[in-house]
Protein backbone atom coordinates (compact mmCIF):
# COMPACT_ATOMS: atom_id res chain seq x y z
CA UNK A 1 0.00 0.00 0.00
CA UNK A 2 1.17 3.49 -0.81
CA UNK A 3 0.83 4.94 2.67
CA UNK A 4 1.50 3.55 6.12
CA UNK A 5 -1.79 5.08 7.24
CA UNK A 6 -3.56 2.63 4.92
CA UNK A 7 -1.89 -0.28 6.73
CA UNK A 8 -2.90 1.34 10.00
CA UNK A 9 -6.50 1.57 8.82
CA UNK A 10 -6.36 -2.10 7.93
CA UNK A 11 -5.09 -3.02 11.41
CA UNK A 12 -7.75 -0.88 13.10
CA UNK A 13 -10.41 -2.59 10.98
CA UNK A 14 -9.05 -5.96 12.13
CA UNK A 15 -9.47 -4.79 15.70
CA UNK A 16 -13.08 -3.83 15.07
CA UNK A 17 -13.74 -7.20 13.43
CA UNK A 18 -12.32 -8.77 16.57
CA UNK A 19 -15.07 -7.07 18.54
CA UNK A 20 -12.93 -4.41 20.18
CA UNK A 21 -14.60 -1.33 21.62
CA UNK A 22 -11.36 0.34 22.64
CA UNK A 23 -8.59 1.09 20.15
CA UNK A 24 -5.28 2.72 20.79
CA UNK A 25 -2.96 4.03 18.14
CA UNK A 26 0.42 5.37 19.09
CA UNK A 27 2.95 6.69 16.60
CA UNK A 28 6.38 7.77 17.67
CA UNK A 29 8.78 9.36 15.23
CA UNK A 30 12.20 9.75 16.72
CA UNK A 31 14.48 11.21 14.09
CA UNK A 32 17.52 11.21 16.42
CA UNK A 33 17.28 7.46 16.83
CA UNK A 34 16.07 7.21 13.23
CA UNK A 35 13.11 5.16 14.35
CA UNK A 36 9.41 5.13 13.57
CA UNK A 37 7.26 3.00 15.85
CA UNK A 38 3.58 2.35 15.20
CA UNK A 39 1.56 0.58 17.85
CA UNK A 40 -2.04 -0.54 17.50
CA UNK A 41 -3.62 -2.08 20.58
CA UNK A 42 -7.19 -3.26 21.12
CA UNK A 43 -9.37 -4.99 23.66
CA UNK A 44 -10.87 -7.39 21.11
CA UNK A 45 -11.23 -11.13 21.51
CA UNK A 46 -7.50 -11.77 20.99
CA UNK A 47 -5.83 -14.84 19.52
CA UNK A 48 -4.46 -18.08 20.88
CA UNK A 49 -0.87 -19.16 20.22
CA UNK A 50 -1.81 -21.24 17.16
CA UNK A 51 -3.75 -18.42 15.47
CA UNK A 52 -0.99 -15.98 16.34
CA UNK A 53 1.57 -18.26 14.69
CA UNK A 54 -0.43 -18.38 11.45
CA UNK A 55 -1.51 -14.76 11.22
CA UNK A 56 1.47 -13.72 9.06
CA UNK A 57 0.64 -16.45 6.56
CA UNK A 58 -1.22 -14.87 3.60
CA UNK A 59 -3.29 -18.02 3.16
CA UNK A 60 -4.71 -17.79 6.62
CA UNK A 61 -7.72 -15.70 7.54
CA UNK A 62 -10.57 -15.89 10.03
CA UNK A 63 -13.04 -14.27 7.72
CA UNK A 64 -15.60 -16.29 5.85
CA UNK A 65 -16.07 -14.00 2.85
CA UNK A 66 -12.77 -14.96 1.24
CA UNK A 67 -9.82 -17.28 1.76
CA UNK A 68 -6.84 -14.98 1.92
CA UNK A 69 -5.75 -12.48 4.54
CA UNK A 70 -3.16 -10.11 3.18
CA UNK A 71 -3.30 -7.29 5.69
CA UNK A 72 -0.74 -8.41 8.26
CA UNK A 73 1.69 -10.07 5.78
CA UNK A 74 1.81 -6.90 3.68
CA UNK A 75 2.47 -4.65 6.66
CA UNK A 76 5.12 -7.00 8.00
CA UNK A 77 6.87 -7.07 4.63
CA UNK A 78 6.79 -3.27 4.50
CA UNK A 79 8.43 -3.02 7.94
CA UNK A 80 11.08 -5.63 7.21
CA UNK A 81 11.93 -3.96 3.93
CA UNK A 82 12.79 -0.84 5.97
CA UNK A 83 15.10 -2.39 8.52
CA UNK A 84 12.29 -2.88 10.99
CA UNK A 85 9.87 -5.59 11.98
CA UNK A 86 6.32 -6.32 13.04
CA UNK A 87 5.58 -8.05 16.30
CA UNK A 88 2.17 -9.17 17.52
CA UNK A 89 1.30 -10.12 21.04
CA UNK A 90 -2.14 -11.35 21.94
CA UNK A 91 -4.14 -12.95 24.70
CA UNK A 92 -7.48 -14.64 24.09
CA UNK A 93 -10.15 -12.60 25.81
CA UNK A 94 -7.86 -9.66 26.51
CA UNK A 95 -6.81 -8.15 23.22
CA UNK A 96 -4.07 -7.78 20.67
CA UNK A 97 -1.13 -5.45 20.29
CA UNK A 98 0.74 -4.94 17.04
CA UNK A 99 4.03 -3.06 17.04
CA UNK A 100 5.62 -2.15 13.72
CA UNK A 101 9.01 -0.50 13.51
CA UNK A 102 10.70 1.22 10.59
CA UNK A 103 14.02 2.89 10.02
CA UNK A 104 12.64 6.44 9.86
CA UNK A 105 14.67 7.66 6.87
CA UNK A 106 14.76 4.39 4.96
CA UNK A 107 14.41 5.03 1.24
CA UNK A 108 11.65 2.42 0.93
CA UNK A 109 9.62 3.67 3.83
CA UNK A 110 6.22 4.84 2.62
CA UNK A 111 4.98 8.12 4.07
CA UNK A 112 2.41 7.99 6.85
CA UNK A 113 0.07 9.80 4.47
CA UNK A 114 -3.49 10.79 5.19
CA UNK A 115 -3.71 9.67 8.79
CA UNK A 116 -6.69 11.95 9.59
CA UNK A 117 -8.79 10.10 6.99
CA UNK A 118 -7.73 6.79 8.49
CA UNK A 119 -8.93 7.90 11.91
CA UNK A 120 -12.13 9.31 10.49
CA UNK A 121 -12.85 6.01 8.69
CA UNK A 122 -12.62 4.22 12.02
CA UNK A 123 -14.78 6.75 13.85
CA UNK A 124 -17.44 6.30 11.18
CA UNK A 125 -17.18 2.51 11.34
CA UNK A 126 -18.16 2.08 14.96
CA UNK A 127 -19.15 5.37 16.55
CA UNK A 128 -19.51 3.80 20.00
CA UNK A 129 -15.92 2.55 20.00
CA UNK A 130 -13.41 4.51 22.06
CA UNK A 131 -10.39 5.59 20.04
CA UNK A 132 -7.26 7.01 21.54
CA UNK A 133 -4.52 8.37 19.31
CA UNK A 134 -1.19 9.75 20.40
CA UNK A 135 1.44 10.90 17.94
CA UNK A 136 4.84 12.21 18.78
CA UNK A 137 7.34 13.70 16.35
CA UNK A 138 10.52 14.38 18.28
CA UNK A 139 9.43 17.02 20.84
CA UNK A 140 5.93 17.61 19.50
CA UNK A 141 2.83 15.71 20.40
CA UNK A 142 -0.77 15.51 19.28
CA UNK A 143 -3.31 13.48 21.21
CA UNK A 144 -6.92 12.70 20.48
CA UNK A 145 -9.33 10.81 22.67
CA UNK A 146 -12.96 10.09 21.83
CA UNK A 147 -13.85 10.05 25.51
CA UNK A 148 -12.90 13.69 25.75
CA UNK A 149 -14.85 14.45 22.58
CA UNK A 150 -17.92 12.59 23.82
CA UNK A 151 -17.88 14.52 27.06
CA UNK A 152 -18.01 17.77 25.15
CA UNK A 153 -20.73 16.46 22.84
CA UNK A 154 -23.13 14.90 25.31
CA UNK A 155 -25.90 13.08 23.44
CA UNK A 156 -24.95 14.42 20.02
CA UNK A 157 -23.37 11.54 18.05
CA UNK A 158 -19.85 11.67 16.63
CA UNK A 159 -21.32 10.86 13.24
CA UNK A 160 -23.53 13.94 13.06
CA UNK A 161 -22.56 15.66 9.78
CA UNK A 162 -21.47 18.85 11.49
CA UNK A 163 -19.54 17.02 14.19
CA UNK A 164 -17.94 14.83 11.54
CA UNK A 165 -16.74 17.94 9.68
CA UNK A 166 -15.39 19.40 12.91
CA UNK A 167 -13.54 16.20 13.75
CA UNK A 168 -11.95 16.08 10.33
CA UNK A 169 -10.69 19.66 10.65
CA UNK A 170 -9.48 19.05 14.16
CA UNK A 171 -7.51 15.95 13.19
CA UNK A 172 -6.05 17.61 10.11
CA UNK A 173 -4.88 20.63 12.06
CA UNK A 174 -3.39 18.60 14.88
CA UNK A 175 -1.60 16.31 12.46
CA UNK A 176 -0.23 19.15 10.31
CA UNK A 177 0.98 20.98 13.40
CA UNK A 178 3.28 18.06 14.23
CA UNK A 179 5.41 18.79 11.18
CA UNK A 180 5.50 22.56 11.33
CA UNK A 181 8.99 23.98 11.64
CA UNK A 182 9.18 24.92 15.29
CA UNK A 183 9.63 28.67 15.54
CA UNK A 184 8.24 28.96 18.98
CA UNK A 185 10.98 26.92 20.58
CA UNK A 186 9.53 24.29 22.86
CA UNK A 187 5.79 23.67 22.53
Amino acid sequence: MRELSLHILDLLQNSLEAGANRLELEIIEDTKQNLLTITVADNGRGMDAETLRRVSDPFFTTRTTRQVGLGIPLFKAAAQRCGGDLVITSQPGTGTRVVATFQWDHIDRAPLGDLPSTLLSVLLARPDCEVRYRHRVDGREFAFDTQEIRQALGEVPLTHPQVRAWLEDYLRQGYAELYHASEDGQG
Partner: peptide, 26 residues
Protein backbone atom coordinates in the same frame (compact mmCIF):
# COMPACT_ATOMS: atom_id res chain seq x y z
CA UNK B 1 -0.04 19.71 22.82
CA UNK B 2 -1.55 21.73 19.97
CA UNK B 3 -5.15 22.70 20.71
CA UNK B 4 -5.74 24.96 17.78
CA UNK B 5 -9.37 24.07 17.56
CA UNK B 6 -10.75 23.84 21.01
CA UNK B 7 -13.25 21.48 22.51
CA UNK B 8 -15.16 24.61 23.47
CA UNK B 9 -16.24 24.86 19.83
CA UNK B 10 -17.60 21.37 20.11
CA UNK B 11 -19.72 22.34 23.11
CA UNK B 12 -21.19 25.21 21.12
CA UNK B 13 -21.86 22.89 18.21
CA UNK B 14 -23.64 20.54 20.59
CA UNK B 15 -26.12 23.22 21.61
CA UNK B 16 -26.64 24.16 18.01
CA UNK B 17 -27.46 20.72 16.71
CA UNK B 18 -29.11 19.18 19.75
CA UNK B 19 -32.60 20.27 18.81
CA UNK B 20 -32.54 18.70 15.36
CA UNK B 21 -30.70 15.46 15.91
CA UNK B 22 -33.66 13.17 16.40
CA UNK B 23 -35.16 13.95 13.03
CA UNK B 24 -31.81 13.79 11.26
CA UNK B 25 -30.77 10.41 12.58
CA UNK B 26 -34.07 8.77 11.77
Amino acid sequence: MPKIKSLEELRKLREQVQSEITTRTE
